[in-house]
């Protein structure tokens, strides 16, 4: 009998231990498609027994997961909105942002496009649909195909705020699920234009446009000179604890920030 109890206790302990070692991270595609999986791989290598469940379906889903308590870390490429913070507070959730790294939303076109850059005004005109032909902004004549992220994306929201004076996207714009899908569409469409996080700008078939003469890079983003520069976040319920705190600490460590650089984002230090 005593032996049976011991075995049962050991089994329960192992199950509890296993579940405590699992880190659920949800949210931003910008962070969750490349950076966080690579950070997780490296972290797992250093912490055997820790497993990850990563779902990158947009920043909105990450913040919602923290409010609902279905994830320990919510990835977001945008700041939480007032309504989200309010909803969290009403549920007793204390939204805590932690900067992961910096990003500059790059405006990309097909590599064959003669365009090298746009002004902020031209970007607004193109993405809102005020301008529908590339010839109006110095490109080859042709109807512009605008590719944007979907509405749950933080980049979708940030770009609206930073580049479009909060105006609506052109009705003809096509909504893509992730950065990689935008890159793929622009790479095969000579009249395509879209935007992606810095980590996605090295793909073949596309090129990054200057905005008011400047490109998104470490210097312009950190100095906040690039108009579409932004921080990216982990959201937690209050100060992070346990495995989540350790993972965030790892993200900020030298090893973590090397991965940030390697993926293409700008480290926090």
């Amino acid at each position: 009998m005593k032996k049976s109890i011991l075995i049962a206790s050991a089994l329960i302990a192992s199950v509890v231990s296993a579940s405590a070692q699992k880190l659920v991270i949800k949210g931003s595609d910008t962070l969750g498609a490349k950076l966080v999986p690579q950070l997780a791989e490296e972290y797992k290598a250093q912490h055997p027994g820790v497993s990850f469940e990563i779902a990158a379906e947009g920043s909105t889903t990450g913040i919602a997961a923290i409010i609902d308590g279905t994830a320990q870390i919510g990835m977001s490429s945008r700041r939480a909105k007032a309504t989200e913070v309010s909803a969290a507070t009403a549920k007793g959730v204390n939204m805590k942002p932690t900067i992961v790294c910096y990003d500059g939303i790059a405006v990309i076109v097909n590599e064959k496009s003669p365009l090298a850059g746009l002004t902020k005004r031209q970007v607004e005109q193109i993405f809102t649909g005020d301008v529908t032909d590339f010839s109006a902004v110095g490109g080859n004549a042709g109807a512009i195909s605008v590719y944007t992220r979907n509405t749950s994306s933080g980049t979708y929201s940030d770009f609206k705020d930073l580049a479009m004076k909060k105006r609506d996207y052109a009705p003809s714009s096509q909504k893509m699920a992730g950065n990689e899908q935008i890159v793929a569409e622009v790479a095969k469409n000579p009249n395509g234009i879209g935007y992606v996080g810095l980590a996605y700008t090295t793909a073949p078939g596309i090129k990054v446009l200057t905005i008011d003469g400047g490109l998104p890079n470490k210097e312009t983003v950190l100095a906040k000179k690039y108009p579409y520069a932004r921080p990216t976040f982990y959201y937690t319920n209050g100060e992070p604890t346990g495995e989540a705190a350790k993972f965030i600490e790892f993200t900020h460590s030298d090893a973590g920030q090397v991965i940030v650089s390697k993926v293409g984002f700008i480290p926090v230090k």
Binding site: A80, V85, S86, T89, K96, P97, T98, P231, F233
Partner: peptide, 25 residues
């Protein structure tokens, strides 16, 4: 610094959210 600024933004939003205006969407 940037992190302190983000914490401050959230604190202000939390305070705002408890006001009447903050409950309007």
């Amino acid at each position: 610094n940037d992190q302190e600024a983000e914490d401050l933004r959230v604190e202000l939003l939390k305070d705002f959210g408890t006001s009447s205006a903050g409950k309007l969407n």
